[in-house]
Amino acid sequence: MSEEAIRLSGVSKAFSGHVAVEDLSLAVPRGAAFGLLGPNGAGKTTTLRMIMNVLGPDSGTIEILGQPATQERRDRIGYMPEERGLYPRMVVEEQLLFFAELKGVPRKEGTRRLQPWLERLGLMDWRRRRLNELSKGMQQKAQFIATVLHDPDILILDEPLSGLDPVGVNVMRDVFVDLRRRGKTVVLSSHQMETVERLCDAIALIHHGRKVLDGPVSEVRSRHGKNTIVLSYEGDGAFLAGLPGVLKVSDFGRYVEIKMAEGADAQGILREAASRLRVSRFEVVEPSLHDIFVEQVTSGGEAAA
């Protein structure tokens, strides 16, 4: 059995002249929580849609659980698109059974499985109501049940946390953790780096339809080295930007982040700062995914242009 839940090899997709995804290769390890990152319009949704055969790739191949993506393979995936969608005037229970049936779960079996989910997400009393009688938060929960009711091995969630209230976020996180524990593979797309950093083991960053970098989160971060200094001080720090080895200073008010050139001497910068300012905090850190993201995206953008 393959170690990869999903593999994309050289996948490209263009829409009337505009290239949405170009020569993209990805490997999502089985059992991983995988984050697909990129700014809006990077091609995340197009990529997920191609995995789900909502769109067909122009070229390249897609494998699911070690075999070419077929209907039968895709039945093992639960997909929650970015634009959530259920029938507003259909009864909740009826509706969820319908979606499970579309994934090959017979009605009887679906009914049996539905019960625990309704109880868990607090929709028991609402199961015979029409969807549009439910609050937005409850509709989101119903949507989630529709995604997992057929007990998929892989979950693909496009921007899973967007539009959720704090309670919804908590519920989602619990379910997420539970699914991980049960060995499910979760692929989520997001442009919110903090979320991905907390939830995912591995990421791929795409920009303008191309993969910029990928790998386990820790590896990605360390690959970019400890090149950032976090500094808190009192006094006029204007001179910091002019120090040798300093690429960029970002002022966050309470502290500044100093981006160093490769091979720059952090201790030298500390000495210089300590001699001219009252330093209350000095720390050399790995860049956050956000920083890597911004760096890659801005430089990548220039390279592409």
Partner: peptide, 17 residues
């Protein structure tokens, strides 16, 4: 139109042709 405007259609066509 209902399926399209409520975006149900994407969930459906990800499950069946």
């Amino acid at each position: 139109i209902e399926e399209k405007s409520n975006r149900v259609v994407e969930v459906i066509v990800s499950s069946i042709p």
